[in-house]
Amino acid sequence: MGSILIVAEIQKGALREATFELVAFARKLADANGSEVKSLVVGSGVADLAGTLASKGGGEVFVADDAALANYNVDGYTKAIRAAVEAAGADLVLMSNTPTGWDVAPRVAAGLDAAFVSDCFDIQAEGGGLVFLRRVFNGKLDARLTASEGRVVATMQPGATSAYEGSGDGKTSELKVDLSGLRAKFVETKVAESKGVDLTKADIIVSGGRGVGDPEKFPEVIQPLAEALGGAMGASRPVVDAGWLPHEYQVGSSGQVVSPKLYIAVGISGAIQHLVGMKTSNFIVAINKDPDAPIFEVADVGVVGDLFEIVPALTSAVKAAKGG
């Protein structure tokens, strides 16, 4: 058996939790098929982080350390990963399904003419081959995929498994990468500015999704329930994309991550990018007309029905109970 190469990711000067989840997947597969686990750390001044990864299960860690890699650069990362795949003799490359992973991993796969499977929640070794499990149709169905002989590049969904907690005594080795001719140029990173609505402070959030159907319905149906409960209003991404509500109302991986005492999801299907923004809420209520909507899997209580019937009735009941 060959080796599994983990491409580590650095965020705010530290290795991401998702990287140690990759270590957990890699160790599981290595135990099953005898592969060797190796890793790649890309950046500038990252020798210490490489050492950390080597001591925490990353195996032999290649370090592509260069001022030109201080920030993410699609061309630079493609070259560094290609060089590491050669150096490691990797037949499986694992990355996280993050903005970095989905930007570069398919490029690496195409360049190597390798199989590519994205956003898996599990990989299993089966009968000498690999089986990949992932969601399709925004979480409405699951899929099981297999790869033919040869090299595979896969990205894994962050949070799909627990971070590896074992230790190791891998060595680190410097990786020479030819970084001439980079076409993409990093300019800057802009952090999200918070405007007015800070949903993270609300005890109760009532969020509306595409199922609300119409911008007028937010002040008519969603906001009154939020107000009656003394909570805040939130939204899924399509609502914000359509301009029905400003971006600061968006809950999810590219919006705010909230954890209120009560989260009411109205007309929201429950795609993973929404779920990661609210699933740690203390109590979740879902109102959706589709009994198979994935939101019901994370909800504590669900109502299968028409939101336009249930939400106004609930609003009246809350108002009556509060003596309003």
């Binding site: 969601r135 979480g139 699951d142 899929a143 995929l145 790869a147 033919s148 595979v152 994935p294 249930i310």
Partner: peptide
């Protein structure tokens, strides 16, 4: 193709939500 879609299926139902039944009231 180097990747084959073997099957798609309904996600296994976990504990899931307690579904409230009955009239709107």
């Amino acid at each position: 193709a180097k990747v084959r879609m073997e099957k798609v299926y309904q996600p296994p139902k976990g504990e899931g939500a307690e579904l409230l039944e009955g009239s709107t009231d």
